[in-house]
């Protein structure tokens, strides 16, 4: 049975697209046929993060409007043949996506794919609403920072009242917390909300902590999902997250500060 995962946050700039790219790649590398969809119509960026921006011919809106078939629009990832990307349209028409059209495409994708990852735009407008509407699971990407935590809580309210599952009185969407841009050093100094603090406030199941990491910018610079950088802390954090989501037992990492004396002294990455 296919699962639809929405990666959402409310607030912008917290790492939704980075997360979507990483977990889609992680699931695909585990052998599950995965599609990742960019819902940010007008501001598409998933193609850049996935490094396939020059291969975009048709997009999500073209498929909805019947101007292209799904197979024409899906881009096969260059690093993993189990992974396909459906780019967003760059049209300025905000109403280009319709609930019915999105539902039809997701139904079609469900026949072929095991996981469908929906990269939500920021905000709570139509694109964000449609990205989460059909979801089975929600990955709430949150930074340990007041506005991000508040917006995440707002998204939780929307997930539990405005989704298809809520409207049909089905089993609710499974919600998971992904705490990104985490700095254990700053938490220890009392300058940053801790994992426990955020969990106390949001009461969410923690899927993983992604540390603040230079590797994320390096990955997006080169158009490679950060999970492919297996040596990096953020890449390992995402790999753990994928494993945990698939039911494997992985102890949480990157929550405590780095104890290495020399790394601390020289301010390693």
């Amino acid at each position: 049975m296919a699962r639809i995962i929405v990666v959402t946050s409310g607030k912008g700039g917290v790492g939704k697209t980075t997360t979507s790219a990483a977990i889609a790649m992680g699931l695909a590398k585990k052998g599950h046929k995965t599609a990742v969809i960019d819902f940010d119509v007008g501001l598409r960026n998933l193609d850049l993060i996935m490094g396939c921006e020059r291969r975009v011919v048709y997009d999500f809106v073209n498929v909805i409007n019947g101007e292209a078939t799904l197979n024409q629009a899906l881009i096969r990832d260059k690093n993993c043949n189990q992974l396909y990307i459906l780019p967003a349209s760059q049209t300025r028409d905000k109403d280009a996506l319709s609930q019915e059209g999105v539902g039809k495409i997701l139904d079609e994708l469900k026949k072929e794919f095991k996981y469908i990852v929906c990269d939500s735009p920021a905000g709570i407008e139509k694109g964000a609403h449609l990205a989460m509407y059909y979801a089975d699971d929600a990955f709430i990407v949150t930074n340990p920072e007041v506005s991000s935590v508040r917006d995440s809580d707002r998204m939780l309210g929307i997930l539990s009242s405005k989704s298809r599952r809520a409207e049909l009185n089905e089993e609710p969407i499974k919600e998971y917390l992904l705490l990104s841009r985490y700095s254990p050093d700053r938490v220890k100094l009392g300058e940053m909300l801790s994992v426990e603090d955020v969990q106390d406030i949001l009461s969410l199941h923690l899927l993983g902590v992604i540390p603040e990491s230079k590797s994320v910018l390096n990955a997006s610079n080169s158009g490679m999902p950060v999970i492919l950088d297996e040596k990096s802390d953020a890449g390992q954090a995402y790999a753990d997250i994928v494993d945990r989501y698939l039911g494997e037992d992985r102890p949480h990492r990157f929550i405590d500060e780095d104890k290495g004396f020399f790394r601390k002294l020289f301010g390693g990455k």
């Binding site: 920072e145 007041v146 935590v149 809580d153 300058e191 106390d200 406030i201």
Partner: peptide
């Protein structure tokens, strides 16, 4: 030295708990 005054993180947590409870 840092611990002598209330940390900004605990301030953030307190403010968020009140706000989130109200909004919920």
């Amino acid at each position: 030295f840092k611990i002598s005054k209330e940390s900004t993180a605990s301030l953030a947590k307190e403010r968020l708990q009140i706000l989130v409870a109200h909004e919920r």
